[in-house]
Nucleic acid binder design. Structure first.
Lengths: 150, 150
DNA sequence: GCTGAAAGAATAATCTC
DNA sequence: GAGATTATTCTTTCAGC
C-alpha cells in the first residue's frame, strides 16, 4: 500500500469536496478521469479512504448540546468493553482510550441539556465506570475534516 | 428553514454515502432525481449540509498520534482569541470552549509523539495559555459522522 | 497510463398538480 | 410551492491499446 504525491492530492481534493467528478480532479492532477477513478478505487480498497459523507450542522438536525466526558474505569476494564458499551448509546459520536488520569474520553451529542443529562446517567450506569468528569461544549471554534498533508 | 421527514432521510443517506446519485436517493425516498437535487441545493443553501467530504484513515496519511488538550487561560481570554490562535496550528483538528475547570478543549493530530510534543509546545507558548492538561489518544474506539435522527 | 464508446447521472427548462 | 418529465450535457465505467 504505497501512496505517491498524486494520491495525496486526490485525497485532499476529495476531502475538500467529496462530490467533485473524476474529470475535475483529473484536471487538477493532470490525469484522465479513468486513471483517477482507478486510484480512488484502490485507495478505498486499501482503507485509506474509508468513505464519503455529508458534513451536517448538528444544530440543524436538532442536536444543540455537546459534551466531552472523561471516564474513570475499574482496573480490569478493556478497550473492547468500552467500545461495546459506548456504541450502545446513540449520543456517543466519539470515544477514545487515553493516557493520563482518565481511562477514556467520550464525545456526546444530545438534543438539549436534559437529553445530555439522561445520556450521561446511562453512561455512568455502565458497570465498569467508577466516575466521570464532564466538559459541556459552550462553542465549537474549530472542526476540520481529516486534513491531508500536501 | 423547515425540514420535513424526507429531508432528514435524504441527509441520512448522504451522511452514509455522499457520492450516491440523486436518482438512487430518489428511489429510496420516492422522489425523482431533480426533486432530490432541489432539496439538497436548498439544504446546502440553508447551511444544514455544510459540505461533502472523504473520510480518511489518519494513519494512512502519516498522522499516527492524536491528543486532546485542555487549555487553561488567563481571565480575559475570548473565544475569538482561542479560535485565531488554534487555527494557526495545522495540528489542531478541533477546538471547543467548555464549561468546567478548563476553558477550552483542543483536539490535535500529529505525525508522531515528537511532532505532538512540538505542537503542544507551540500551543503552550500562546500568551493567553496559563497551563494545559493533555490526554494522548491510545486508541480510537468510536468515531461517527454526525448522525441524523430518523 | 490513455482513448473511445455505451450507459447512466446531472442539470436546466418546461409543464402539471 | 413542490414535484414530474423531457432533453442536453457531462460523468462514469468498461473495453482495448
Amino acid at each position: 500500500m504505497q501512496m505517491d504525491a498524486v494520491d495525496q492530492r486526490i485525497i485532499a481534493l476529495l476531502v475538500a469536496d467529496a462530490r467533485s467528478s473524476y474529470a475535475e480532479i483529473g484536471a487538477r492532477v493532470s490525469l484522465s478521469a479513468p486513471a483517477v477513478k482507478r486510484r480512488v478505487d484502490r485507495l478505498r480498497a486499501d482503507g485509506v479512504i474509508k468513505g464519503f459523507t455529508a458534513v451536517i450542522e448538528p444544530a440543524a438536525v436538532g442536536w444543540t448540546t455537546e459534551a466531552f466526558v472523561e471516564l474513570f474505569c475499574t482496573g480490569r476494564t478493556t478497550p473492547a468493553q468500552i467500545t461495546v458499551a459506548t456504541r450502545r448509546h446513540p449520543e456517543v459520536v466519539g470515544a477514545y482510550t487515553v493516557s493520563g488520569q482518565a481511562d477514556a474520553l467520550v464525545h456526546l451529542r444530545a438534543a438539549d441539556i436534559g437529553h445530555l443529562e439522561q445520556a450521561l446517567e446511562r453512561l455512568r450506569a455502565e458497570p465498569f465506570v467508577t466516575s466521570t468528569r464532564s466538559m459541556v461544549v459552550l462553542s465549537r471554534l474549530v472542526e476540520t475534516p481529516t486534513a491531508v498533508p500536501l
